[in-house]
C-alpha cells in the first residue's frame, strides 16, 4: 500500500509550479554541492562557474583511498579504520537514542503520572545546555569511571556513544511523543483489555504503527553520532571522519580538493542511511489504525 500522499485529485500544473519554486529556492544548495563534488575530481577547487578552474583528475580519490593526506609526503592514515569508527559511533548513538526515545515518548504520551508535566518541560529545557558547556563536566564523569588502560579504547567508544546519545534524548522523546499522540486510544485499550501489559502494547502494537517516527529518530540519532565533533574529539581515543576532516581542513597547507573528496566520502553512508530511513517513512501506512 502506498504511503500517505496527496494522490487523489492533484493537478499536474500546480505540481509542476510547486516543483519549480522549490528548485529555484534550492539553487544555492544545488550549486554549492555540485561544486564540492566537482572539486573532488579536479586538481584545484572549483569555486565559480568558470570552467577554466576545472582540471579533471582521479588522483584525489586515489590518494584518499590510499589513506594519504597530500600529494607528496604527509602521513598515511587507515581511512577504512576511521570510517569504521565513525559507523560504530553513529549506529550506537542511533540505536540507543531510538530505544530510549521510544520508551520515554510512549510514557509521556500515554501515561499519567506524578511530575509528567515537569518531566516534559525539563526534557525540552535540557536542550538549552550546550555541549560546549557540558563537556567539562562530562569529562569529570569520564575520569571517575575510567577503567584500566587496556580497556580504555573500548570504554571510550562506549562512553562517547552513551554521552552523545544522552544529548539526543530530549529530541527523541519529544518527537516520539508527537507520533504516539496520533494513534487512537481505542487500539491500546483493546490490547490492554485482551490482557497485554503496557510493555507488550508498546512493543507489539504501537511501535509498528509509528515506524515513520522511529525512522526519523533513528536518522537524527545517526546523524548526531556521525557528525559529532566535540564529544568525539574529547573522549574517543580513535578518530572519526568528522574529526579527521576538521583537523585536516587547515586552509593554509591542506590540499583542499582532498578535503572535498573526504567530504563526499563522508556523505555517502549518510545518504544511504537516509534513503533507507526514507523508505520506511514512506512505505508505512497508517491504515492499521482501523484494525
Amino acid at each position: 500500500m502506498p504511503g500517505m500522499r496527496d494522490v487523489e485529485v492533484r493537478s499536474r500544473a500546480s505540481e509542476a509550479l510547486i516543483l519549480l519554486v522549490i528548485l529555484a529556492v534550492s539553487l544555492p544548495l544545488i550549486t554549492g554541492y555540485s561544486l564540492l563534488i566537482l572539486s573532488g575530481f579536479s586538481k584545484s577547487m572549483v569555486t565559480n562557474l568558470d570552467p577554466s578552474s576545472f582540471y579533471p583528475t582521479l588522483m584525489n580519490w586515489i590518494l584518499l583511498l590510499q589513506g594519504r593526506t597530500a600529494q607528496f609526503a604527509g602521513i598515511r592514515v587507515n581511512i577504512w579504520g576511521i570510517v569504521a569508527n565513525t559507523l560504530v559511533v553513529a549506529l550506537g548513538v542511533s540505536a540507543l537514542v531510538t530505544l530510549v526515545g521510544s520508551l520515554t515518548g510512549y510514557a509521556v504520551s500515554r501515561m499519567n503520572f506524578a511530575g509528567r508535566k515537569h518531566i516534559m518541560m525539563l526534557l525540552i529545557l535540557l536542550h538549552a545546555f550546550p555541549g560546549s558547556v557540558l563537556v567539562v563536566g562530562v569529562a569529570f564523569i569520564y575520569r571517575m569511571f575510567m577503567p584500566p588502560l587496556e580497556y580504555i579504547r573500548f570504554y571510550s567508544f562506549f562512553y562517547v556513544i552513551v554521552a552523545r546519545a544522552a544529548i539526543e534524548i530530549p529530541m527523541a522523546t519529544w518527537l516520539m511523543k508527537g507520533f504516539f499522540d496520533m494513534i487512537p486510544w481505542e487500539i491500546e485499550w483493546s490490547a490492554i483489555v485482551d490482557g497485554a501489559s503496557r510493555f507488550r502494547v508498546w512493543w507489539n502494537v504501537l511501535l509498528p504503527m509509528i515506524k515513520p517516527g522511529v525512522a526519523a529518530v533513528m536518522l537524527f540519532g545517526f546523524l548526531a553520532g556521525w557528525m559529532d565533533l566535540i564529544y568525539v574529539r574529547t573522549f574517543l581515543v580513535d578518530r572519526t571522519l568528522a574529526t579527521f576532516i576538521e583537523a585536516n581542513a587547515e586552509a593554509e597547507y591542506a590540499y583542499l580538493p582532498l578535503v572535498a573528496v573526504a567530504g563526499t566520502l563522508y556523505l555517502l553512508p549518510t545518504i544511504i542511511f537516509f534513503i533507507a530511513a526514507q523508505r520506511l517513512i514512506f512505505t508505512i501506512s497508517v491504515s492499521g489504525i482501523k484494525g
Partner: peptide
C-alpha cells in the same frame, strides 16, 4: 513536498537534508 509526487519529494528531502549531513568543515568550505 506533500503536494508533489513521491520520487520528486524524496529527492528534494535528500537535497535539503544534505547540509545537516555534511561534515562541518566541508559545509563551511562550501
Amino acid at each position: 513536498t506533500f503536494f508533489v509526487n513521491e520520487r520528486a519529494a524524496g529527492g528534494l528531502q535528500l537535497l535539503w537534508l544534505l547540509p545537516r549531513m555534511t561534515p562541518i568543515a566541508v559545509y563551511s568550505l562550501i
